[in-house]
Amino acid sequence: MGAPDKVESQTNTTEKSCKELKCDCNLMWSMIQQMSTKRLCTLHGRNEGSIIPVFSDRARRISATYARFYLEKEDYGEPTKKGRFYWMALGAFASKTVACSLDDLRVPIIDPVFKGLAKGNLWLFYDISGWHWYYTRFRNSFDQCVSCRDASAYIKPVKDQVANYPWMDEALPKIANMHRHDHIVEAFDLVKQIESSRPGEDQERLKYQHLIAIANHEQGVILQPLIYDDACFARWVWVQRLRGIRSLSPKLQMAFTSACDIDDQKLKSEAPKETVLEDFQSRMQWITSVADIFHDLMQRQGAYMESQLNAMAGWVNMDQMQNYQPTYMFGAPL
């Protein structure tokens, strides 16, 4: 997989003296990117691995990671601060929904939609997980370094890894090398307020505001330019809304369960028929409605919601092809 996520300094030959090693923002961002890389890989040795090949497995590992962030089960998590990464809980259900769509036999037959969903979910993960891992691991320098993230400037071993990410040549220019951070700054300012607040109405309000800030980044900064502005993807999404075809297409919905669907209508949200998925404003209207339902469920049925998040957190090592022997390192998408 390349370089380990450690930095070594040449031995100092002066007895009883020290050699200072300075880690700048770019070096730390490079280290963080490796954490995102490793999460979606099968490791073959200390520093070697290959990305898991099945698209829906990637989506379930992503769902697991988001759930683990919310539950504070990731490395450097703090269980006493559970709830501060509020979007991550909703993100877990969203990535699970993508996994279910990718497994739906009606989706792979439309290749631009199949690969578009996989691509968007993958690159959103590469982007959004990094901000959260940096905050938990290097919190003291987050404010200083938040504006310095730039995938084109990573140290060479990490750039070499990123160069083999699926759809890299297309994705990185469209998402500005994972540099754009206006909504991220807003969201993590809210995280700090959540951390310093007491449980109650004010904290719940902050959590909801944080969720919407991340949603604006997710939808506007990453997914809109990466997949929804793609003419081919947008055209096929439009086709699925046509009379006679809509009824044969997968439902556009979010079900708040670790399963793909649930009978209880109060535990899911189906997009209104007038939703134009490829249009940012139209899509955000539905996503805001989903966020409202999610927020209500997290307050009224918190134990149930956390049980579903814990179930999804268990997918962190999902790999249906674990006995498959790849011939590439971080190869191109299937």
Rank of each mutant, 00 (worst) to 15 (best):
A303K: 14
N323V: 02
W87L: 00
N47A: 11
R46C: 03
L71W: 00
P4D: 14
R246M: 04
A332H: 04
A234N: 05
F55H: 08
S9W: 02
I155R: 09
M318C: 12
E170R: 00
D5E: 07
P250T: 07
M312P: 13
N177P: 08
Y228T: 05
L172V: 14
T65D: 13
A118N: 12
R300S: 13
V7I: 15
M318G: 01
L206N: 03
T80Y: 04
I32Y: 05
N47I: 03
C100D: 15
P79L: 08
A213V: 11
V98R: 02
A89I: 00
F280V: 06
S50T: 15
D263E: 12
Q33P: 00
Y86C: 03
G130L: 05
I293Y: 09
K266I: 02
S269A: 13
D75L: 10
A332Y: 02
H183S: 10
F55N: 05
I214H: 07
Q285H: 15
V239H: 11
D230G: 02
E195I: 05
M1L: 13
E270P: 02
P53M: 03
K16D: 14
A215Y: 05
I212T: 06
S9V: 15
H181T: 04
L117S: 03
Q253S: 15
K38P: 02
T11S: 14
